[in-house]
Amino acid sequence: MNSATSNSSGNAAPGASAGVASSASPTFSPLYQQIKALITQSLQSGEWKPGELIPSEVELAARFKVSQGTVRKAIDELSAENLVVRRQGKGTFVATHHEERAHYRFLRLMPDAGEPRQAESRVVEVKRLRAPAEVARMLELKGGDSVIMIKRVQSFEGVPAILEEIWLPGALFRGLTAERLIEYKGPMYGLFETEFGTRMIRATERVKAVSTEAAVGELLAVASGTPLLSVERVSFTYGDKPVEVRRGLYRTDSHHYQNELS
């Protein structure tokens, strides 16, 4: 089984530019989409850091010289894409991977019974090497560019459940070591966000069934030939730039893969 998952016109806003098609005919995006793009640029540039309060809708409307309704529609979409978080009576904040609600956004392995629990992580290996051809293609790197490969086992209540290989561009993650990963107690994406300025915005996944090989079985404490779920994920930051390839093997004897479709 293979499957892939993700995730008319208006006047130009200040700072926004209309695209030009190959035929030289002007093309326009709705005004709220232009405002959304401008807000996203501010997020990408770090004007507002993860976890920080962004200006109110009234302030943003004055800044961009548009109606408050236009700003609200732009923020509605940013909220739906998990780039910002609305908090009743407090305002709108830049989303961060340190929030409890974000911990399970990319981890879709859920227990068959009971509430989701925080995984315990054991780093097996961290090494820097030249990118294999397939990884380089997926990360849009040049052949031979440096990458960091992390292998780790995630367990729930002491039982191994996930074996992961994580591939990251070496240039973006200079200084990332096994020691740093082991001493850091928060979510891995929180570390990437805080110390390397790289925030995962969206991801695509390919899911299929595989059987356990001997070396994998030793790490996941299952017999060779046991069915596993293979999940290959590419994660993207702002500008649709791929910054992570993650290949996970999931035990599903007491867990299941859960996704929400809309």
Score class of each variant (00 low, 15 high):
Ser67Glu: 15
Gly10Ala: 15
Glu157Arg: 15
Arg105Ser: 02
Asp253Arg: 00
Ile201Thr: 04
Asp240Gln: 01
Ala62Trp: 05
Ala102Arg: 02
Tyr184Val: 03
Pro50Leu: 02
Phe64Cys: 06
Gln154Val: 12
Asn259Phe: 08
Asp253Phe: 04
Gly175Arg: 06
Val20Cys: 06
Gly175Lys: 01
Glu164Met: 06
Ser9Arg: 11
Gln68Lys: 15
Arg251Ser: 05
Asn11Arg: 13
Gly91Ala: 03
Pro227Gly: 08
Tyr184Asn: 02
Ser42Tyr: 03
Gly143His: 00
Arg202Cys: 09
Tyr104Glu: 11
Ser155Glu: 07
Ser42Cys: 10
Lys73Val: 06
Ile35Asp: 05
Arg174Ala: 15
Ser67Tyr: 14
Lys208Ala: 05
Tyr257Thr: 03
Phe236Tyr: 13
Glu120Thr: 15
Ala13Thr: 07
Glu120Leu: 04
Ala62Lys: 15
Glu205Val: 11
Ala161Glu: 15
Ser146Trp: 08
Ser155Leu: 08
Glu52Lys: 00
Gln88Tyr: 09
Glu213Gln: 13
Leu163His: 12
Arg108Tyr: 04
His255Arg: 10
Leu191Thr: 08
Ser224Lys: 11
Thr198Cys: 06
Ala18Ile: 14
Val222Cys: 11
Gly217Ala: 09
Ser45Met: 05
Val84Asn: 01
Gly158Ser: 13
Val210Arg: 09
Ala215Pro: 09
Leu168Asp: 00
Arg72Glu: 10
Phe196Met: 04
Pro160Tyr: 15
His255Met: 14
Arg63Gly: 02
Val243Trp: 00
Ala95Met: 01
Ser23Thr: 14
Gln118Trp: 02
Gln44Pro: 07
Leu261Asp: 00
Val159Arg: 15
Glu244Met: 08
Pro169Gln: 06
Arg108Thr: 12
